[in-house]
Simulated assay, not measured.
Amino acid sequence: MPDPTQTNPIEDERVKEISGLRRALIRPELGGIVGTIAVFTFFVLFAGDSGMFNSQGVLNWSVVSAQFMIIAVGACMLMVAGEFDLSVGSMIGFSGMSIAIMSVSWGWPVWVAILATFALCLFVGAINGYIVIKTGLPSFIVTLATLFILRGFTIYVPQVLERKTIIGGVDTAAQGDWVAWLFGGKILTGLFSWLGDAGVIDTFTRGTRAGQPVVDGIPMVIVWAIVLVALGQIVLTRTRFGNWIFAAGGDAQAARYVGVPVNRVKIIMFMLTAFCATVLATCQVMEFGSAGADRGLLKEFEAIIAVVIGGALLTGGYGSVIGAALGALIFGVVQQGLFFAGVESSLFRVFLGVILLFAVILNTYIRRIITGER
């Protein structure tokens, strides 16, 4: 007779057991982790002696990766919410030109120009979201229109004001401006000087900078990337608002039925992509001391590709900021690694196409695992 003291759980045939392998496969970061390991292994083997992994080489691909990461954070969270923003690249050019015009052409203090530009771009992002929500049009179409509008203004306005499409002198206007330093400065300069004196990192051997470290600090673009990735991951995975983002992208109508403010969530996500694009643009303007009308070309597609590599589904409701950051890291390492390996740089676009196709196939398989499709 069965022991009455033992309780056997009632098995429900509707509940499917997920194996350990499948549980690992449905982690959104898996593709990014595998890709990162593969890319680093490749370049350690074929470009390890070229300087790619000395202090200057690490800084080079870290800065490029950080630029991708900044815009990938906003693109990832918006895609998880079920929408796309194709105006990111034009927003980068537009916001950079806005800062240059306000500070150089109009003579505003740089900190005022930066804050005013952020306010303007956040407003544009909110308008994108509002139009998508109120009209029901696909965000692909709405933001494609915004892409052309912003790029047109970015080219037209400086030509009217300055009769040119590149405005310089921002670095001169920004001297001593603390807000400008938040985007164009460096941190831990004392630590890197000490590392150079100790012989841990390379130093200049001649010229006016003899004895100074080749890498004299961590640029703020890297700091911004780390902060945005960390905050984005925390919000997405540890907060109620993060649950709302997943719900809005997974099934918007069902989310509305349980009280999720889907419209507000999506508008905020469009504003986030505009914010991230403006952060990157401001860092670029402070780094180069100028703004160009061609800045940000194709960045919207590179951001989306980084997010897809990081495991986000194109259908929304699934993704990871950490995965998107790994996708951006892969971009940066490959873009710079091809140069160090002596490979034709145009092959970078070939790599983007191949890895995008692979990522979409992998993500489709993952979606079938999640949904139980055959």
Rank of each mutant, 00 (worst) to 15 (best):
E11G: 11
I33Q: 05
C76P: 00
V39I: 15
W106N: 08
D85F: 10
F68Q: 03
Q56S: 13
M97E: 13
A100C: 12
T41C: 07
E17P: 10
M97V: 12
F43S: 01
G89E: 08
S87E: 14
G107I: 11
N54G: 04
I70K: 06
K16C: 13
S103C: 14
M97Q: 08
V64I: 12
G48P: 10
S103G: 15
W61K: 00
L21Y: 07
M69I: 05
A47N: 08
W106C: 07
S105G: 11
F46W: 09
S65N: 03
F40L: 15
A75G: 06
F53K: 08
M97D: 12
G89I: 04
E17L: 12
A81C: 09
F68K: 00
V44T: 07
V73F: 11
S55V: 14
R23L: 12
S50F: 03
P9W: 05
A38E: 08
G82N: 10
A24S: 11
V63Y: 02
S19K: 09
D12H: 09
M77V: 06
M52G: 03
G51T: 12
I70F: 01
L25W: 06
M52K: 02
M52I: 13
G93P: 11
V15T: 08
E11R: 11
M69Y: 01
I71Q: 03
Q56Y: 06
N60A: 11
F46N: 05
G74N: 07
L30I: 15
E11A: 14
G48R: 04
C76G: 04
M69N: 04
F94Y: 13
F46G: 00
S103H: 13
S105D: 14
V104E: 11
D85Q: 01
V104F: 08
N60Y: 11
R22P: 04
E83N: 12
V104G: 14
L45K: 02
I37D: 01
F53V: 05
G31T: 12
A47Q: 01
L25E: 03
A81G: 14
R14D: 00
G51M: 03
V44W: 13
G82Q: 15
L30Y: 05
V15F: 11
I10M: 02
I92W: 07
K16I: 15
G93N: 09
P28S: 05
S87M: 03
A47E: 01
M69G: 13
I18K: 06
M69H: 00
A66G: 04
K16P: 10
R23I: 02
M91E: 10
A72M: 00
S105H: 15
S90E: 04
N8V: 15
M79F: 10
L30D: 09
A24R: 02
L86I: 13
A100Y: 03
G74K: 02
E29F: 03
V104K: 01
